[in-house]
Design a protein around this nucleic acid. Sequence first.
DNA 1: CAGTGGTCTAGACCACAGC
DNA 2: CTGTGGTCTAGACCACTGC
Lengths: 232, 232
Amino acid sequence: MADPVYIQIVEDIKKKVNNAELRPGDTVPPENALCKEYGVSRMTVRKGLAILASEGYIYSVPGKGSYVQKPEVNKYTLHYDEMNNPINSVDNARLLEVTIIMPDEKLADELRITRNKHVILIRRVFYTDGVPVAYDVKYLLYSKGMPIVEKEIEQATFQEMVSNGLPNFALKKKLSISAQIPNEETKRYLNIYDEHALLVVEQKLYNNENKPIGIGITSYRGDYIKLQASSD
Amino acid sequence: MADPVYIQIVEDIKKKVNNAELRPGDTVPPENALCKEYGVSRMTVRKGLAILASEGYIYSVPGKGSYVQKPEVNKYTLHYDEMNNPINSVDNARLLEVTIIMPDEKLADELRITRNKHVILIRRVFYTDGVPVAYDVKYLLYSKGMPIVEKEIEQATFQEMVSNGLPNFALKKKLSISAQIPNEETKRYLNIYDEHALLVVEQKLYNNENKPIGIGITSYRGDYIKLQASSD
DNA sequence: CAGTGGTCTAGACCACAGC
DNA sequence: CTGTGGTCTAGACCACTGC
């Protein structure tokens, strides 16, 4: 019980929200009322409310008051690492190809470039215990500092290819996850002979100006990957 | 440029982190130094630093200082709604079965109950434009206030079944996403005759004491669903 | 107009790191 | 010991809302 006062305030209000004592849309008591209730100054109350707001419990409207927020029921946190997932890890990668290509219309469009710009194409197969578990294709816009040594490319994640070891808070990434039946080429690379499902993860990377800088498509054998996400 | 001072501080430091002027592990200037630099009081500086900390840019160690945090490169935000996804929405659902069962060993284990407890089994098929797009199975521990009217169950999401319209910040959920080949039963429900991949989403719900209260397995036709996630 | 939240000050005391 | 971050105060002025 050595918690600072503002934590007390946070937890009291959370509790009230969680037993429906306060419902979405209800007003939270005004700051001055909470000051009196807890016998503290306004800055202390505001610190508590700021935390509740940052955690999505409440929101404030200047001149009016603070209100209980509707919980975001559909939001999850997903941890995705190309080379590691909860049921399996890639322990080796083989570089099939790294070449400079001219993009076709679809690719140029996705990368928002003209068709006369050069794009780096990288194709790899990922292995676990010698078994091919994923086929990986990446299209990258070239920029300075990128790895040019094939051995580096071979074992690098998408993030590592473009950020080159530098910290990068600015890099934005989008994932698109789907299930597909492998085409003949993919079947060949993954030694698939019978019916099989692929978990396909498409990654798109954007720089801090929101311009696409790379697209990656990783097709995992369905029995070798499981993605996990959780609320909170 | 009418931004409050603390926003200025936040953006200045973000900028320094993003051009590697400040690197992960580096110390952020001490609060008193920032007070002088910006000509403001300490509380104002601290407000800025609190924001940077809540956004994962920095962390503070009492008695020592504030440090630049390593970015969490593998974290994404996923929006998952059983009935709605970026490329398709469920517009109808058919209830196949709702019964009380005794769990087998595996299910009892997953729900952390003994095998003599009753479990509600719900099986449904989801439709879009009259086409069956997903086969859905749920196992629920019964609790008061749950919908018992079949018509309600038919169209409800998992969240709605257990939370019954009440706000629920306390409910924790975990997702497990994989690609699978449909079994004969699923093929029948989804009218699948040829080779097809399923995107299978397993949901597990926990109450605020972290006890499982339900498991749901939704198997979507691979060509009817795409999950999307993004960093930031 | 009174009540609300948003910003900010200029102090204070504390616990903790490191010398 | 000094310097650091963590908590807190008792005010202040502002802009906005709703009556």
